[in-house]
């Protein structure tokens, strides 16, 4: 079900940033929520299911993208990074706001970038530093999303408690 939620977040229109090779999306918010609420096993699984549906050709990514093509582009590493991100957030997740926030920052941003940036460097044939600079433009948006994800996750935990593993 959470996989479907991530898809729905893609229905929010992406904020187009024409200069840089990865569109900003609200979907990484869903990735952080999946990790925070579902834990280190089911969180990444939800993301994998979502990517599987995208791979099948359903245009669920923000901007109505889908199909095999997106897994070959320069930003495809960030899609794979979501799996790692959901896992790390799931490992670090907790019942306190500050720890949730730390989890979203380390997993939702750190882990995703660790996979996404080298991929972009490789595919777009630019150096790691250049890829990092290109990605830094998204850092502000990602920071906002990490904070929002942590706040939402805490509120959802209060409203509908469930085990996180």
């Amino acid at each position: 079900m959470f996989a479907a939620l991530i898809a729905a977040l893609g229905l929010l229109p992406p904020i187009p940033v024409p200069i840089i090779p990865v569109p900003i999306t609200a979907q990484s918010l869903g990735v952080m929520l999946a990790g925070a609420l579902l834990g280190p096993k089911r969180g990444p699984l939800a993301v994998i299911i979502f990517l599987g549906v995208v791979l099948l050709g359903f245009p669920l990514l923000s901007g109505g993208r889908g199909g095999l093509g997106v897994f070959f582009g320069p930003s495809a590493g960030f899609l794979l990074g979501w799996v790692a991100g959901a896992f790390v957030v799931g490992v670090l997740t907790a019942q306190s706001l500050s720890r949730l926030m730390a989890a979203c920052l380390v997993g939702g941003i750190g882990a995703v970038y660790v996979v996404g940036v080298p991929w972009m460097a490789l595919v777009a044939d630019i150096s790691l530093t250049q890829a990092l600079i290109a990605s830094a433009a998204f850092l502000a948006g990602d920071l906002v999303k990490a904070v929002l994800a942590a706040i939402s996750a805490r509120a959802i935990q209060r409203g509908y408690p469930l085990g996180t593993s």
Binding site: A3, A8, G52, V53, L60
Partner: peptide, 17 residues
């Protein structure tokens, strides 16, 4: 089955949203 199920739920999630 899970993949097909997810596809079916996509419109449902957007309705709830």
């Amino acid at each position: 089955f899970v993949l097909v199920f997810t596809v079916r739920l996509v419109p449902f999630v957007s309705i709830v949203g």
